[in-house]
């Protein structure tokens, strides 16, 4: 029983290191995913096909994901890209019903997605 408990504890500790990509290409792919998703959210604000609470909360959650990658970034370029993406998503979250800002954020996130794609190669 004691051995089983220790095994479970060891596995739980091992698992705490899981979930965050470490390789630069994989990190770039994840940043590309976040920026593409953020661009879709921003596009939906522009077309009026969404709700203000959803945009505010979901953009903030995506920004948080980008921020956590910023801290774990394997290269300075990835760190800078993560910072740009999280900044745009925070702006979108803070002004969730501003169509003009959403349009600009969508364009910037589109560019960020392309940069991420290049870095992932």
């Amino acid at each position: 029983m004691r051995r089983a408990a220790l095994l479970v504890l060891a596995l739980a500790l091992a698992l705490t290191g899981c979930g965050q990509p470490k390789e630069p290409a994989k990190q770039a792919e994840t940043l590309g995913s976040i920026s593409t998703e953020g661009r879709i959210v921003a596009d939906n604000v522009v077309s009026g096909r969404t709700t203000e609470p959803f945009v505010r909360v979901h953009s903030a959650a995506l920004a948080e994901q980008a921020r956590s990658l910023e801290q774990a970034a394997a290269t300075p370029r990835l760190r800078s890209l993560a910072e740009r993406i999280s900044g745009q998503l925070e702006d979108l979250s803070d002004h969730a019903d501003d169509k003009g800002l959403a349009n600009r954020v969508a364009a910037r996130l589109e560019r960020a997605s392309r940069t991420a794609e290049e870095l992932a190669r």
Binding site: S33, T36, E37, V41, T50, T51, H58, A61, Q65
Partner: peptide
Amino acid sequence: PNGIEPELLGTVALGAQVPLGTIGLL
């Protein structure tokens, strides 16, 4: 096709919003 790796509950909801708009989201 969009290279999105879903990790959030909001991303799941986005899957109904994109084709169906606000009513899909709600």
